[in-house]
Design a protein around this nucleic acid. Structure first.
Length: 260
DNA sequence: ATGCCCGGACGTTCCGGA
C-alpha cells in the first residue's frame, strides 16, 4: 500500500499536475491538503476516472482536505467532532483496506503569540484528545498531512532563520511531540536518518533556488504498520515549475507499506 | 523593517500562506 500526502495549494490551480502525477504513480491512498474549494467544485469526475474514490471535506477559499483511495473508504469522519465550534476544514479520516487513514492540514500559526498561534496549539491539543479517545495505537493507522511544524532542526535548512517562527518554535514542537508520543513513527525519518530533506520551500526568494526548505509534511504510522514500511520519500521533482505548469509550494511525500 | 511569490475573491488591491 503506497500512501501519499500532498499539500496542493488549490486543487483547481493544480488540476493538470495532480491528474498527471496520479496517473504516473498510481498510489493506493492519497491525502490532499489545501484544496481551497467547496466539495461542489472538487474535480470528482476526472479523479474518479483514474479509479479513485474521493472523500472530500471542502471549504471556500481556505483549507480543505481529501482522501483518494482505490479501495472503498469506510467510517468517514470530517473534523474532530469534539464540540468545538470550528468551521475550518482541516481533518478528514477514513478506513481503507483495514488501515485507519487520518489526513490533516494543521493551522499555520501566524506570528508567535498571535490569535492564530493559540489556535494552532489548541488544535494540536484537540488532535491528541481525539487520538486518545477515538483511535488505538495498537491498530494500523496512518496520520499524515501538512503539520506546519519542522519536528527538529534536522528538518530545517536554516535553523537560525526559522527558530522563532510558528514552524520551529519550541511550544509547537512540543505539541507535535505529544502527538508522536501517542504512538507514532515518522516513516521518512526511519528510512532517512540524515538531514537535508525538505517538503516545502517558500515561493518567495530564497525559496527552492536557495534550498531554504523545511520538512513540515509527514507520514506517521502506528507500530503494526510502521514495521511494514519498506520505503519512504519526497518527490522534489514535483516541486519544480514546468512550462505552463506551476508547482505547489509543497512536494508530494510518500510511504510504501508491505500491506496486502 | 518589509517585500520578494502564489492563489483566491462581490478583485481593480487585499489577505493568507509558512
Amino acid at each position: 500500500m503506497k500512501v501519499v500526502s500532498w499539500n496542493v495549494n488549490s486543487i483547481r490551480a493544480r488540476y493538470d499536475r495532480v491528474l498527471n502525477w496520479l496517473d504516473a504513480h498510481e498510489p493506493d491512498v492519497v491525502c490532499l491538503q489545501e484544496l481551497k474549494c467547496v466539495e461542489a467544485d472538487f474535480p470528482f469526475d476526472a479523479i474518479s476516472s483514474l479509479g479513485y474514490a474521493c472523500t472530500v471535506y471542502g471549504q471556500k477559499t481556505y483549507n480543505g482536505v481529501a482522501i483518494l483511495s482505490f479501495d472503498e473508504p469506510k467510517d468517514v469522519v470530517r473534523g474532530f467532532g469534539d464540540g468545538v465550534d470550528d468551521p475550518q476544514a482541516r481533518m478528514v479520516a477514513a478506513t481503507i483496506d483495514g488501515v485507519r487513514i487520518v489526513d490533516l492540514y494543521v493551522p499555520n500559526g501566524g506570528k508567535l503569540g498571535s490569535e492564530k498561534w493559540s489556535y494552532k496549539l489548541s488544535w494540536y491539543d484537540r488532535l491528541v484528545r481525539w487520538l486518545d479517545q477515538r483511535c488505538d495505537p495498537a491498530q494500523p493507522l496512518v496520520l499524515c498531512g501538512d503539520f506546519n511544524i519542522a519536528p527538529t532542526d534536522l528538518d530545517v535548512d536554516r535553523p537560525d532563520k526559522w527558530r522563532d517562527t510558528a514552524m520551529c518554535a519550541l511550544p509547537g514542537r512540543e505539541a507535535l511531540a505529544r502527538v508522536v508520543d501517542w504512538g507514532l513513527v515518522d516513516t521518512f525519518r526511519t528510512h532517512h536518518p540524515g538531514g537535508g530533506h525538505y517538503s516545502w520551500w517558500d515561493y518567495r526568494p530564497p525559496g527552492l533556488r536557495g534550498n531554504d526548505g523545511l520538512r513540515i509534511d509527514q507520514i506517521y504510522a502506528t507500530a503494526p504498520l510502521a514495521e511494514r514500511c519498506v520505503e519512504a520519500g519526497i518527490d522534489i521533482e514535483e516541486r519544480q515549475d514546468r512550462p505552463g505548469s506551476k508547482a505547489s509550494d509543497h512536494a508530494p511525500i510518500w510511504a510504501d507499506f508491505n500491506w496486502d
